[in-house]
């Protein structure tokens, strides 16, 4: 049995203009020790899916489907039960380490909080554990840093503190939502390396959420590509990068400027703009920007087809998407 089994997860947010479906029928599995990357642009539902897993969605929202952790459906848990699961079994790292740390408490105090609450440690035990954790995430001089406030740390160090908090209760699954987007490339490199090492050594499963195909490609075993709330393509990372099939995945990859590519060529662009959740078509959410779209795409959700072992694509026009080159598609 998989550690985490998400089936037909839908998240519906109540907005002023009516209900918005932020996540549509998302299904995936995650085993112990595996890393899953969720990639997509803003508004594709990747963060909402993560918040749904953590049970941290805004109050005016509705969650449908199943999130099974070791066979237990998290959506049926009470708030008190979820409090026990968050931190102990699932932990999350957020994008902006400055806003997710409390500026008026020392970092030591903030790492100690889950230790005292979840692991019932005494103050002294907790302090020793904080020193160990700070050392573990690679912060030099933990003894001095423990009394620092977040503003005294650099962006990379703050993110390390966030990771220490997430690790404090030895979770089974670590969810990292754009953990390095606010950081410089060299610091990003360090943080991703740290997350990789920790996940491997602690035997955790990792869900890494990013808009950057490069980050996802280098740090995960499996990928889920999302657009407009739906998973459009999923499978093993190596397989997917061997052949990108869904028109959106192809377009996204081609639109990315890549190092080492000769200058002078033009980037492929996907027409239109990142969609608003309101007014997306009932069928395939990519219809309005897709060069292959026909009437059937607008009204019928595409079937999820296992194109190759370990590669699933949701598209009505699979054959055409596979035979035509990306440049041809988006010209």
């Amino acid at each position: 049995m998989s550690l985490l089994n998400v089936k037909d997860l839908s998240v519906i947010l109540a907005t002023n203009e009516g209900p918005a479906r932020a996540v549509r029928n998302l299904s995936f599995r995650l085993n112990r020790g595996e890393t899953l990357g969720i990639v997509g642009e803003s508004g594709c539902g990747k963060s909402m899916a993560a918040l749904a897993l953590m049970g941290l969605l805004p109050e005016q929202s509705e969650t449908l489907g199943e999130i099974k952790l070791d066979g237990q459906n998290l959506l049926e848990k009470s708030d008190a039960e979820m409090c026990q699961i968050r931190g102990n079994r699932l932990a999350m790292i957020f994008q902006e380490p400055m806003t997710s740390l409390n500026p008026v408490h020392t970092v030591g105090h903030q790492i100690m909080e889950p230790l005292r609450l979840h692991r019932n440690m005494s103050e002294n035990e907790a302090k020793a554990e904080v020193l160990r954790l700070l050392d573990r995430v690679g912060i030099p001089n933990p003894k001095e840093r423990i009394d620092n406030y977040p503003h005294q740390l650099s962006g990379g160090q703050r993110q390390r503190v966030m990771i220490a908090i997430a690790l404090s209760c030895q979770p089974d699954i670590l969810i990292a939502d754009e953990p390095t987007t606010a950081l410089d490339v060299t610091i990003q490199d360090q943080i991703l390396e740290l997350i990789q090492t920790l996940v491997r050594e602690e035997g955790m499963a990792l869900i890494l959420i990013s808009h950057d195909l490069g980050v996802i490609s280098e740090n995960t075993d499996n990928i889920l590509v999302m657009y407009g709330g739906c998973a459009v393509e999923a499978g093993g990372t190596a397989q997917i990068f061997e052949e990108l099939i869904h028109p959106y995945t192809q377009g996204l990859f081609a639109a990315m400027p890549k190092l080492g590519r000769a200058r002078g060529g033009r980037l492929v662009t996907i027409p239109g703009t990142v969609p608003d959740l309101m007014g997306l078509p009932m069928g395939c959410t990519f219809t309005d920007r897709c060069p292959l779209a026909t009437e059937v795409c607008r009204n019928t959700p595409p079937p999820i087809v296992e194109v190759k072992p370990l590669q699933f694509v949701a598209c009505h026009h699979l054959d055409e998407a596979r035979t035509r080159k990306t440049e041809e598609l988006f010209s």
Binding site: G156, V185, T186, D189, S217, E218, N219, L259
Partner: peptide, 24 residues
């Protein structure tokens, strides 16, 4: 080092490179 630190899509997980310690 800057060039090496840029993640490259589809290049596999292991790349030989010099890593930079510390920050600016």
């Amino acid at each position: 080092i800057l060039l090496d630190a840029v993640p490259k899509p589809g290049s596999g997980q292991k790349r030989e490179r010099i890593k930079l310690k510390g920050n600016v």
